[in-house]
């Protein structure tokens, strides 16, 4: 009996070790590109193209970062990017909480069909609206500026409306009924009851909106023509055109800096990201 139990425990231990071994091998593959990017960003220019490649730089050249940052006015691009990112986060929070509350809690004729319409637009490829939007924004003189990238955020983003609505549905009905009996208005209920309870969902929206807008490339590429207006992602693409192919240490230094904010957010807010995915079954 005891021997049997010991054999069983041994098998369990081998199993666990095997799981760790497989998981770790995969994890190394997944992390390797980041490490390679970091390693390259610290190499001397004459060390980038040696063959076979060196895994680690023979000496650390932190000055690559300063030199790369000097090549283009990245401070300007950072300010542009943050302006768009923060403006869009605020816009999304405003428009999406309102609509989400309406869809989650209020009864009105036509609501179901509007909700289905909204879900339908979540699947719509952005490429279908890209050209007509561009023509529309151009015709009112907005085509070279931030407005086309920022105004739509104040008019709802279906994915976030859906996410917040799913969360609002889980809030017990009794709370607002009590508040309504006390004479609270709909906005009052949303502000004083729902928003405080929905902090995790709001955090999810903030995190997803930050990452999405920070990484966004296509619409800035279409709309921001003056280099003064460029965002980080557009600037990096331009940097690639000017210095790519040779100065990979500078390119990787800039890339590391561009990815760093998203990585930081990931480390602190991973919980909200995963919650967002599980709640909506999607990835923005």
């Amino acid at each position: 009996m005891r021997r049997l139990r010991r054999a069983k425990r041994l098998r369990r231990m081998i199993n666990v070790l095997l799981i760790y071994l497989i998981a770790a091998t995969g994890a190394i593959i997944f992390v390797m590109p980041f490490l390679w990017m970091l390693s390259t960003s610290l190499k001397a220019s004459n060390e980038i193209f040696v063959f076979p490649p060196r895994w680690l730089p023979s000496s650390l050249h932190f000055e690559n970062y300063a030199e790369a940052l000097d090549m283009l006015p990245f401070g300007r691009y950072l300010a542009n990017t943050l302006f768009i990112v923060i403006g869009n986060i605020l816009g999304n929070l405003f428009s999406c909480t309102l609509a989400a509350y309406g869809f989650a809690r209020l009864r009105a004729p036509g609501k179901n069909i509007l909700f289905l319409l909204m879900l339908g637009t979540m699947m719509l490829p952005l490429w279908v609206t890209l050209i007509p939007q561009y023509i529309m924004f151009s015709s009112i003189g907005w085509s070279n500026g931030f407005a086309p990238l920022m105004v739509p955020a104040w008019f709802g983003w279906p994915f976030f409306i859906f996410l917040l609505r799913q969360f609002f549905m889980t809030i017990p009905q009794e709370l607002e009924e009590a508040a309504r009996l006390d004479g609270a208005t709909t906005l009052g209920i949303l502000w004083y009851i729902f928003l405080p309870l929905a902090k995790p969902a709001l955090a999810t929206v903030v995190v997803l909106a930050f990452i999405g807008n920070w990484n966004n490339f296509l619409t800035p590429l279409v709309y921001l023509r003056d280099s003064d207006l460029h965002t980080i992602s557009i600037a990096i693409n331009r940097f690639r055109g000017q210095y790519g192919g040779t100065n990979y240490n500078y390119m990787m230094a800039i890339s590391v800096l561009a990815v760093l904010p998203v990585l930081t957010i990931f480390f602190f807010a991973q919980r909200y990201l995963i919650q967002g995915i599980v709640m909506t079954g999607s990835k923005n």
Binding site: F30, F217, S255, V259, F266
Partner: peptide, 22 residues
């Protein structure tokens, strides 16, 4: 491990594409 496997998907974008080129 779950975090490590999930991590790359949040870092999409131009910088990452350039990294793959390299």
């Amino acid at each position: 491990f779950r975090a490590i496997y999930y991590l790359p998907s949040v870092t999409s974008g131009i910088a990452i594409a350039i990294m793959w080129g390299w």
